[in-house]
């Protein structure tokens, strides 16, 4: 038996909106730790890892570890039927082939349940080792989204370079080139407006902007985005989910032929 009650149902709505175009179907895993997912896009270039910790739920009952295969567009469609202020409860029976999403309005005057068929998904789970990154950039998530959107009007790829000068986002296309440099800016009035760059060594990597733009759909989840770069690893674009966990996007770089 599984029963997870999330007071801030809008979080789950936002999570689905941020991943449904990147990943078609995925297994949601539930254990004492929480509600999690790891999935790759169809071309295996990007990977998303989601964790919503059990402590973040108002009620969390998961009698045994369970993996539920869902088609994400269908799940997103059902969650769109929940109001932004609704409490969402996810329910499933052990060994069942359906999951139920229950939506309660804040004053309890409307209760809806939507039952969705589960599917069997053969997905490989990858081990993601803890790594030391050469550079970590923390910046307002809206600023990062703006940069990715602006650059994709010029080119298809972005070169992200971190030096002691700051972080530079560059692109090149048929009509010309673009460079956006953000300098460390820790002394702002609001901490969420700060750009903080931790650099151990300079690093420069090239990525497909199409994926970066897809990751920025998670912007409504967090004011701050953390971008971790290392020359030997996929970039990690992380959005923390208030008090609950995170959504991390991993993107394999483009490499010189």
């Amino acid at each position: 038996m599984l029963e997870l009650r999330l007071l801030q149902g809008s979080l789950l709505k936002k999570v689905l909106e941020s991943i449904k175009d990147l990943v078609t179907e995925a297994n949601f895993d539930c254990s004492a730790t929480g509600f999690s997912l790891q999935a790759m896009d169809s071309s295996h270039v990007a990977l998303v890892a989601l964790l919503l910790r059990s402590e973040g739920f108002e009620h969390f009952r998961c009698d045994r570890n369970i993996s539920m295969g869902m088609k994400l567009v269908n799940m997103a469609m059902m969650l769109k039927c929940a109001g932004n202020d609704d409490i969402i409860t996810i329910k499933a029976d052990d060994g069942g082939d359906t999951v139920t999403f229950m939506f309660e309005s804040p004053n309890q005057d409307k209760i809806a349940d939507f039952e969705m068929k589960l599917m069997n998904i053969d997905s490989e789970h990858l081990g993601i080792p803890e790594a030391e990154y050469q550079a970590i950039v923390r910046m307002p998530s809206s600023e990062f989204a703006r940069i990715c959107k602006d650059l994709s009007t010029i080119g298809d790829t972005v070169i992200i370079s971190v030096t002691k000068e700051g972080v530079k986002f560059s692109t090149k296309g048929d009509i010309g080139t673009a460079n956006i440099v953000c300098r460390q800016n820790a002394t702002v009035d609001k901490p969420e407006d700060a750009i903080i760059i931790e650099m151990k060594e300079p690093v420069s990597l090239t990525f497909a902007l199409r994926y970066m733009n897809s990751f920025t759909k998670a912007t409504p989840l967090a004011n701050i985005v953390t971008i971790s770069l290392s020359s030997e690893l996929p970039v990690v674009v992380e959005y923390k989910i208030a008090e609950m966990g995170y959504i991390r996007f991993y993107l394999a770089p483009k490499i010189e032929e």
Partner: peptide
């Protein structure tokens, strides 16, 4: 010219 690498080039199956 740049080639797109894949996640499995970096992370292996659990």
């Amino acid at each position: 010219h740049c080639l797109q690498s894949r996640i499995s080039d970096y992370f292996s199956r659990d």
